[in-house]
Design a binder for these strands. Sequence first.
RNA 1: GGGGACGUAGCUCAAUUGGUUAGAGUACCGGACUGUCGAUCCGGUGGUUGCGGGUUCGAUUCCCGUCGUCCUCGCCA
Length: 600
Amino acid sequence: MKQRSPWQRTHTCGELNREHVGTEVVLNGWIENHRDHGQLVFVDLRDRHGVTQIVGHTETDGIGEGVFERLRKLGAEDCVSVTGRVRARDADKINKNRATGEIELLVTGLVVLGEAATPPFEILDEAEANEELRMRYRYLDLRRRPLQEALVKRARFVTAIRNYLQDQRFVDIETPILTKSSPEGARDYLVPSRVHPGKFYALPQSPQIWKQLCMVAGLDRYYQIARCFRDEDLRADRQPEFTQIDLEMSFVEEHDVLDLVEGMVVHGMREGFGVELPQPFPRFDFEQAMALYGSDKPDLRFGMELIDLSEHAKTSAFKVFQGAVETGGMVKGIAVEGAADKYSRKNIDALTAFSQGYGAKGLAWAKVTANGVEGSIARFYEGAAGQELIARMGAKPGDLLLFVADQAKVVHKALGEVRLKVAAELGLRDPKKFRCCWVLNFPMFEWNEDRQRWQYAHNPFSAPVDWDNTDFEKDPEYHRSRAYDFVMNGWELGSGSIRIHKPELQKKVFQFLGISEEEQQRNFGYMLEAYKYGGPPHGGIALGLDRMCALALGRDGIRDVIAFPKTAMAVDLMAQAPNLVSAEQMAELQIVSTAKKPDA
RNA sequence: GGGGACGUAGCUCAAUUGGUUAGAGUACCGGACUGUCGAUCCGGUGGUUGCGGGUUCGAUUCCCGUCGUCCUCGCCA
């Protein structure tokens, strides 16, 4: 028999039921609530598995000396061991809201394992205390059920992912945390080297290069639940350190990676969160996603696609529409089903201002009635013209039509954002509904206005779609990369590509990006060299684990699914990191700080 | 780096146009109570109004600065 000290639990606080009635048990947990009736006292004892009601009564058979008095004096969040007999509750005293509600524990013994000072905030399911305080006492915030639930489900999700990849013959490989800085991409976190004064390691922004080298090594199928570090300004969905499900496969094409990841995500969401994802995930060409949704991360929980009216606009009486097309732009619209009477003039003005924030000059609108259209553009669409517009928009009476006329880029951005805004206002972005898709064939390069040069749109290792045309200088915009994004509910959750595995091609890309031979050697020399020794075709993806968990749980940000997160200023309020280090440590690293000294 | 919101009792909030001793709920402490489950009832403790400065007879309130948290744009291959 397993050894057990007298104070150690025989059961958790979530598992006792009618079947245990009459047995002697020991529970360990925290005092959640305390109801003192003088000669009778009730205590709710909580652990992560549930809550069990403890009953203290002076006349209980076998109750220890002073146990009742000590039970009465317990305070919130004391950590205790309780011994007692399981007793069935009378029918009228059953608590239907709890799994253990049919029984209670008649106490005979009590040991206080850890006395609690009055907590700085109450441990409630719905957090009332502000986030600053909760982060400072994160270990108390984590006692709250919703946070424990998030971490438990996250762990279940990760386990399911690992099992899935293990079954698919992937190898879990750890890659260095102390690695090398490269000037591209996000700002690096740096770690000074003691044995090489003046030199620094960088923390990885992702294991990108390492996993590609694993493919050169012939490891075939790599994965890692990898911590990544990026020193950029933060958001609700961005932490300075975050976790990726990172994987790479040899001898594959896009569909191999997409099929595998689709299966993995469906399995993980089901096992981890009980979420069933509708399959298959639609696959959009980048251009197609932009045209239909005005976004490269479309939210497919609702329709409301962007409808192209450019042809029609050429002959429109409305000069704004006609002019936009004549100057090389376009006109697109969305039909908001049944929203005509939900949007007042004032609401539409607000939407207009919103669209202008994304570069639109204005938002043309019309409400569809039984007889035609009314609204800002109605006088240009009387009679047959109005009927034609309604037909093209696939609209019916009661619908609200919204239009943007401008250059394609502006139309897509502004109308795409309006689409999301309207959907949010109409409650169409249901957090309990999940729709995934893939977006493929991103542009290879994009023009950086500030730096006045072309840069890679995805990452510099993504292979071009057209292997035969690698004259990037000729028409940079023509080139598409074999990159793909995984999108769920309008969130970009993953990004990957089929990689370049020929060193000559990789050099051509670097060259076009204006990275000199010398820079290439300095930053990626070992990688270019590796591909000289028989690099296999390969591709992979990295998925944002924190974001996926947040989305699955319907949380607004990723702090809720990370045990010990940092603030928007990248500070750990509990551990007080970052912080100053001793003069000795600085001297040993041969580092001098130029920061202004804080007033002592 | 820019923009916005917030900061008052341990916690969540209130406080009239700038005006008496800064209030309430909850937590906490004490008391009563044998069936509660957010127990109830009675009583009590608890305040550098984030910090610094300014205007004013008088500042929680107005102004400037600063610190912190959150949201957001830029940024995040």
